[in-house]
């Protein structure tokens, strides 16, 4: 089976929504892409209510990582077919039985956006397979144009990396011509970023956020800004008193606050995810906080 094009992803999502109307809702995201493509998601669940407890899955943020959008579309297909036919679903040695499928659809919504960055995917699948960003045009200082923003540096979480982080300790660039990590002209400047923000705001019952990539076999959890600490709540990315000190590994001057119970739950869920992945194909994914080598600014803020 070959990878899906963006047209196929869009058609596939709409076909699933038509076929399984009782068990899902088609969402057309409010902001078309920079090149005006429509972007679709599916909300899987028998109760279509924005306040139902929800998990949000996003794929395709980085255009060159081709498999997550395909995997998310086919996950939707499997879950919807299993719900409709009242069966379970098996992937390798990982099995979700029919009662669990029914519980998921009765009690939760799975809001799944298979491809957040359609323009990047199209460009990556037709011109440059190494393309990662979106395709918005941005002027250069010399009057030319460079294309694309790294959507995973464009969210309003310590977006202003030159202010927030110690120099040289963050993976980000304010050069529109940087092929991989241009942060954009402003936080959430890109329509594709704003769609994800919209999902998080609109689905007030969202409790979990999964950003699916495929560069390396690992499960990362918050935070990616600095090492975690649970003793000093005021030491967090919103507190400007710590500007310029973030991102240095091994120092005590700044570490990102996370509630101890939240961290324990993130570690539990991340390990559970790695356990299930291992049951499918046998590969053991590493599990850790996202910060190690460099900090990352402007990545999405989990609920």
């Amino acid at each position: 089976m070959s990878y899906l094009s963006y047209d196929e992803l869009s058609t596939g999502i709409q076909l699933l929504a038509d076929e399984y109307q009782e068990h899902c809702l088609l969402i057309q995201l409010p902001y078309p892409s920079a090149e005006t493509r429509s972007i679709y998601a599916l909300a899987l669940g028998d109760n279509q209510n924005l306040e139902v407890t929800a998990a949000i899955y996003v794929g395709g943020v980085h255009a060159r990582e081709w498999i997550p959008p395909d995997a998310l579309l086919f996950l939707c297909a499997d879950l919807l077919e299993a719900r409709s036919r009242e069966t379970g679903v098996r992937y390798g040695n990982s099995y979700i039985n029919k009662e669990e499928i029914q519980q998921i659809f009765s009690n939760l919504q799975l809001v799944i956006l298979p491809c957040a960055n359609p323009d990047g995917r199209v460009f990556s699948q037709t011109v440059d397979p190494d393309w990662r960003k979106n395709r918005a045009p941005h002027p250069r200082a010399d009057g030319g144009i460079c294309y694309g923003v790294d959507l995973n540096r464009n969210f309003d979480v310590a977006w202003d990396f030159k202010q927030a982080f110690a120099p040289g300790f963050v993976s980000a660039s304010d050069d529109p011509c940087n092929k991989y990590i241009y942060v954009g002209p402003a936080a959430a400047s890109e329509p594709e970023t704003r769609n994800i923000v919209w999902l998080l705001d609109e689905y007030s019952g969202a409790r979990w956020y999964l950003d699916i990539h495929s560069a390396i076999p690992a499960v990362f959890h918050s935070w990616g800004l600095d090492e975690n600490q649970s003793e000093t709540p005021s030491m967090n990315f919103l507190n400007m008193i710590h500007d310029g000190k973030r991102g240095i590994a091994g120092d005590a001057e700044y570490q990102e606050f996370i509630d101890a119970s939240d961290l324990a739950e993130l570690e539990r869920l991340s390990n559970l995810l790695a356990d299930e992945i291992q049951k499918v194909r046998g590969d053991r994914y590493d599990v850790s906080a996202a910060f190690s080598l460099y900090a990352t600014s402007g990545a999405v803020f989990p609920p």
Partner: peptide, 28 residues
């Protein structure tokens, strides 16, 4: 190479005739 990656793709839209996507999981 870029060329070999692009060869992993095919033209057309396999869902255009209304065939509903089916996942790789075993439904049972």
């Amino acid at each position: 190479s870029p060329q070999s990656r692009l060869r992993m793709l095919r033209s057309g839209n396999r869902f255009l005739r209304g065939k509903v996507p089916q996942g790789l999981g075993e439904k049972k």
